[in-house]
Simulated scan of single mutants.
Amino acid sequence: MPTVTHSPAGTLPDGRLIRLWRLAAPGVTAEVLDLGASLHSLRCPDRTGRPDEVVVSPLDPADRLGAARYLGATIGRYANRIAGARLPTPDGLLPLDANERTHTLHGGTGGFDVRVWSAHPVAEGGAAGVVLRLVSPAGDQGFPGELHVSVTYSLSDAGELRIDYRATTDARTVVNLTNHTYWNLAGGTGATVLDHDLQVAADHYTRADAEMLPLPGPPEPVGGTPFDLTSPRRIGEALEVPDAQIRLAGGGFDHNWALGAAGSDVPARAAVLAHRPSGRLLECLTTQPGLQVYTGNHFDGSFLDRRGRPVRRHGGIALETQHFPDAPRRPDFPSTWLDPGEVHRSTTVYRFGVLP
């Protein structure tokens, strides 16, 4: 039976105390911080059975408020971008916090990733975990409605990590929650993810403009582009293909893939990440309609990982299961609106294995 324990994790510069929750199952351990409801660590074995760290996290938890912001965190109220920091409502455009030029990114300057959540252990169905809760007041970062959010991390006896999201509101609002973990399956032996293979279960993606906002029109076919990941493809090889979209994103992926199996409450395969030298394999399943893949194009060595090494460009890859960017302003995209009396629910599952 998996176990869950907790311990102090330090004090932030502003005096807030943070705690760490450790989930353990045979072969796999995960650590969750109440700061940002963040996945801080995950250790899983390579093909020889040797466990090692596969999550990119800062050595100093305080870096999560600055240079290492968003790493492993729960993002909200709205993951990704809302153009012009304006939310369309029946009464007109509601101003939001603009924290990326003129746009709202990942919920605003004071998004969910910099909050300390309440946390309690849970154990059911042969899994052990921790449920983290947060109340976002009406007007938080400009968003309407008081939002009650819970995020539950649970680890099964088979070493499967599951994240369940739930939210309710007292007034019509938008919700788009995700986890922003950066993965590097090399387990400390590789500085980048360029030698990883990635497969995404999507044959369309949303092209972006210079502000990394989706262009008008429906998602476009991936065929003939570096975004064709319908079969496993070496990340470094894909990023070497001359392509305007890759250049706009700073020399990597920062794009949304439109998943074909959205709308079900049963998680479906979204992506498979593999590292052939170590043999590690990560399968991502989700109920969400989109997958934002980001290859850490901005990492510049300004913070250290848990081994004390600078995290540099392409040092990790984020597989953000979520709704499409700018969906509140795009009625042609799957809706992110939540009304009183409704419950927002989504699930993402990570399975760990080894290549033959």
Rank of each mutant, 00 (worst) to 15 (best):
R101A: 15
T48Q: 14
A37R: 05
D305T: 06
T225E: 03
S335T: 15
G260F: 00
I163R: 13
E124A: 15
T11W: 03
T5L: 02
Q292S: 03
D326S: 05
W21Y: 13
T48K: 10
D140H: 14
G260H: 13
A268V: 08
E53M: 04
P221R: 11
D339E: 15
R345Y: 10
G290M: 01
A98Y: 08
G187Q: 10
A9Y: 12
A158W: 00
A261G: 00
T206C: 13
L239H: 07
L198C: 05
L12F: 11
L105H: 07
L319N: 02
T336R: 09
V193A: 01
V4P: 01
P242G: 09
R47I: 06
V349Y: 02
L33K: 05
R351S: 12
H255E: 04
E320D: 02
H106E: 06
L185M: 05
P2Q: 04
S150L: 01
S7G: 09
S264M: 00
G251H: 09
V130R: 08
G159F: 06
A171K: 13
S264V: 00
G142H: 09
G353L: 07
G316M: 00
P121H: 13
L39Q: 12
L20H: 10
L59A: 14
F227G: 06
D140K: 01
L215V: 13
L105T: 08
L282I: 07
T109D: 09
V175Q: 07
A238F: 09
R50L: 12
L12D: 09
D34K: 08
G188S: 07
